[in-house]
Write a protein that binds this DNA or RNA. Structure first.
Length: 430
RNA sequence: GUGGUCGUAGCUUAAUUGGUAAAGCUCCGGUUUGUGGUACCGGCGAUCUGUGGGUUCGAGUCCCAUCGACCACCCCA
């Protein structure tokens, strides 16, 4: 006998097990996301969780690749990464078939992602995310549409507009200010990174002045930023959103999103609940990302410059779940099983099996309890599983062909013939 | 990657200044061998307090390490 240690029942660090009650919530989230995306005309796509590591090297920073992804070498000496986000995959897939994909195209996907990170509330090592993007549409109406889509998903899950806000900004605001104050191109990224922290830093002006080595420029820059409360573009966007029934947009120039690849509008859905102040979804416009791929290569931009406009967002399951919990919007668990057929005597098992098969053909989700336990125990178990209906089958039912359907929540009973069971269940289940 | 809090039965927790682990829930059985949820009664359940080591006559309680959870920071795709 080997002394091998028995494996632990704990899941791997930072990942979750989804027991039926958990998976029920997961499915609730996904079904609403899918339904609303499809109402907006988005088509579902997917890809493998494995990607060549080089996909993330070009556009994402080295630190993220080296320290925050699961990257390993396979047996064929290839560098593989478990995808940490969908956008590069989406860009890769679109670029691969750029000539045949009609533009604009709307795609969505719900998939799992992996990040090798220290875990924290709302941040695990594996999470699921909806990604919805429009590619081949450069106009403001596409920006408005993806925001409206994210908003509609929240509303579909029961959120009111006061439960969250749509924070919108525009990467071009900073670019314009940089030009106005005459900031050199190479300083843009450095300054942007500093400005991103301005809410947390004590003396941003001093830091800026040190970074760009020019105190008056730093002062002018901050003054311009202070003055910029919105732009004509963002107000136009607000107008379009209002027409689509989105009334909780706020301009927030501090919303920048971490990614370098955004080129225009950026937005976040932000929870307004005091205990759950966090970003629920985020996205923006990224018009240059697809041009990094060599294949395809056809230009669809009017100017022929080779850039392909795209705009989209992502919404994660962990934060969505926290949101629903904070706002008391989590759905109550309902099992897949609609009817439990309890077998009173062993001789009745075949009769129960036949009845179950007949009911399944009529679209009733029916399970048989063939434990041989007493009827009371079988009912108790069905009740514990929250199965809504039971039928007990003993010699009486077997001989008469009539069955008593019991509603476990109300205690109501109704005796019907076999061909009426499905109708009764569906009318009761609504 | 940095700092902090925590880790006791399946779950949630208790254990006076270090003195040889307690309760509720769950589960199982019974009152009630063709109908559950309530109530009452009874029972199983930690070979021991995440793991390894140390201090001590003695450690769940102190020290070190390690793993894990959580919180803040960092980062945020």
């Amino acid at each position: 006998m080997s002394e091998r240690k028995k494996p632990s029942t704990d899941p791997y660090k930072g990942v979750r097990d989804f027991y039926p009650q958990d998976q029920f919530v997961q499915r609730y989230l996904f079904e609403h996301m899918e339904r609303v995306c499809e109402l907006f005309g988005y088509e579902e796509y997917n890809a493998s969780v494995l990607e060549p590591a080089e996909l993330y090297r070009s556009k994402t920073s080295e630190e993220i690749i080296n320290e925050q992804t699961y990257t390993f070498t396979d047996r064929g000496d290839r560098e593989v990464t478990l995808r940490p986000e969908m956008t590069p995959t989406f860009a890769r897939m679109v670029a691969a078939r750029i000539r045949e994909i009609p533009m604009p195209s709307r795609w969505y996907s719900i998939a799992n992602f992996f990040r090798y990170d220290r875990t924290q509330k709302g941040r695990l090592r594996e999470f699921w995310q909806l990604n919805a993007d429009i590619v081949g549409a450069a106009g403001i109406e596409a920006d408005a549409e993806v925001i409206a889509l994210s908003h509609a998903i929240m509303r579909a899950m029961g959120a009111e507009e006061r439960d969250f806000e749509v924070r919108v900004s525009d990467r071009r605001i900073l670019d314009a200010i940089y030009n106005n104050v005459g900031l050199s191109l190479e300083m843009h990224a450095v300054v942007t990174r500093l400005l991103d922290k301005r809410a947390k830093v004590d003396d941003i002006e001093k830091l800026l002045a040190e970074a760009i080595d020019h105190p008056t420029t730093a002062k002018k820059l901050l003054a311009e930023l202070e003055r910029t409360t919105s732009t004509a573009y963002l107000e136009n966007l607000r107008g379009q959103l209002e027409l689509m029934g989105v009334h909780n947009m706020v301009v927030d120039t501090q919303t920048t999103r971490g990614f370098d690849y955004y080129t225009g509008m950026v937005f976040e859905l932000f929870d307004t609940h005091e205990d759950n102040r966090r970003s629920l979804a985020g996205g923006g416009r990224y018009d240059n990302l697809l041009s990094m791929f060599s294949s395809g290569g056809a230009s669809i931009s009017p100017g022929g410059g080779g850039s392909i406009p795209a705009v989209g967002f992502a919404m994660g399951d962990v934060t969505a779940r926290d949101f629903l919990e904070a706002h008391d919007l989590l759905p109550e668990y309902v099992p897949a099983t609609e009817l439990m057929i309890c077998v009173v005597e062993p001789e009745c098992l075949t009769h129960a099996q036949k009845l179950a098969q007949d009911l399944r053909r009529e679209d009733v989700a029916a399970a048989i309890n063939f434990s041989g336990k007493r009827i009371g125990d079988q009912i108790r178990q069905a009740d514990k599983m929250k199965v809504p209906f039971i039928i007990a089958i003993g010699s009486k039912e077997r001989l008469e062909g009539r069955y008593t359907i019991k509603n476990l929540a109300s205690g109501d009973e109704r005796t019907v013939s076999a061909d009426k069971i499905a109708d009764h269940l569906f009318s009761s289940l609504g």
